[in-house]
Nucleic acid binder design. Structure first.
Lengths: 248, 248
DNA sequence: CGGTATTTTGATTTAGCTCAACAGACGTGG
DNA sequence: CCACGTCTGTTGAGCTAAATCAAAATACCG
């Protein structure tokens, strides 16, 4: 039953040159924000960005720091958390390539409200907030795109608030796993593997519970044959069952 | 102790002509979105809006309807809710004049995610979503402004998620009352009155609890001399005490 | 003054948290 | 390649905040 097993997670192989100037332009073009731009404009915009590499666990910025940069994930995964006093952070989101984070032109505090940490080796682009503001004014289509993304995130946040009220922890976890497998899932021997290191604590922080409760529920799902798990990984084997438990 | 008392709430006196074409332009100029516009442009933009009046309790739109319009509160108060299956709605926000609601240019469903209800007599402006998109492309400054508002709301929503996890119901209610009194408070004989009909159920829906629990906590606060209440109204008498209980 | 919706209060139940101990997985250094 | 140490995950037992169910009291309107 419990023969020795290696983690099925693929360790991200992001070489240094993934972040080099050479490949940057190509990547930037893939970012949904910049889809509407011409080749010409894209090059122009590209010049204003800087690229930087982060290793797993690196803090990209911390809550409370002056919010000076807007960033875009180019490769890897980045998690956003809101730290609380007793370390039981709230995990806001996990971002994949093409998604933005950091500060947007804002009305209120010019300080980050959250903390960003590289969940895997990652490459991240950044622009100063003023430079970005200029870009927005120069290319209205981009502003509209950014607005779309932001209002989409707002809708998701509101949905989450509703879920916290309405659903049990069990339902929330089922729903979350379903979502994660849609966003990060890859077929593997174990089933639909969520391709990312993911601890019980992180899982708990995402649905608003404790690692213990998360563990109990995961065990229950495992008993029912809905998924396979190991240290830091989860693979869904019965998507349907999860869905029927956690659907809206 | 319990001498006969009239509700201290001022019933909103919004006459029909508050929504008339005549006053509309003036109102529109006060909307933060449109601050950056010249007199000229404002007139131009104004032409694309329609105004409409709603009475207390009127449904402005329902979750699930085709999301065709963006709206702006010009007078009165509008509440946004996410209905759940068993009527214990989640109250997302209460909007005052100058705030937008309805749909933004979005990527996903072209369907309202929430339900909007007039909390008091209200006047609301609306534009078709395509017309609004045109405005955004035409006046990039507006797009940036709208983005600011939206990302601000996003930050608030995330803060709320954190609160739901971290704070007790008692702390959340204290914090909410503090916020509401800042946004809607008016000095009155009873103290800093939250100028808006507000039931225990609505209060509960805002912090994610039940009317019973909300009532118990309000009673407790009343006993401590922090506030005065009646049917559908609350007035804060000791702001400091509330703050020290519900601060972040 | 009476009627009704809202609010309050009481009693009971329960989901999920906390504290605690243990077991399994992974990495490292010998 | 194996033994050891550490970090992650599992499981158990008891506790508590808040939900639920039920009823009485009250505030406000006409």
């Amino acid at each position: 039953m419990s023969e020795r097993r290696e983690t099925p997670l693929r360790s991200e192989e992001i070489e240094a040159d993934h972040c080099s100037v050479d490949v940057r332009l190509e990547k930037l073009g893939m970012v949904p924000f910049f889809k509407p731009l011409s080749e010409e404009d894209l090059k122009e915009v590209n010049r204003r960005f800087r690229a930087r590499h982060f290793d797993r666990g690196d803090v990209i910025y911390r809550e409370g720091e002056a919010a000076a940069l807007l960033r875009i994930v180019v490769a890897g995964k980045v998690k956003l958390i809101r730290p609380t006093l007793e370390g039981q952070d709230v995990l806001i989101d996990i971002l994949s390539p093409g998604e933005y984070f950091g500060s947007l032109p804002s009305m209120g505090d010019e300080v980050y409200q959250d903390t960003a940490i590289a969940q895997t080796k990652s490459c991240v682009l950044s622009v100063g907030i003023d430079a970005f503001r200029k870009i927005l004014n120069q290319y209205p289509q981009i502003a509209v795109k950014v607005l779309e993304f932001t209002s989409d995130r707002l809708a998701k946040a509101q949905e989450k608030i509703k879920q916290l009220r309405t659903f049990s922890v069990e339902e929330r976890i089922a729903y979350l796993l379903h979502k994660l497998s849609k966003k990060f899932g890859e077929q593997s021997d174990e089933g639909l593997l969520i391709q990312m290191p993911l601890s019980r604590r992180e899982l708990a922080d995402m649905v608003g519970t404790t690692p213990e409760t998360a563990s109990r529920i995961i065990s229950k799902f495992k008993d029912k044959g809905w998924l396979e798990t190991g240290r830091q990984w989860i693979a869904i084997t019965d998507q349907e069952a999860l869905l029927s438990m956690g659907d809206e």
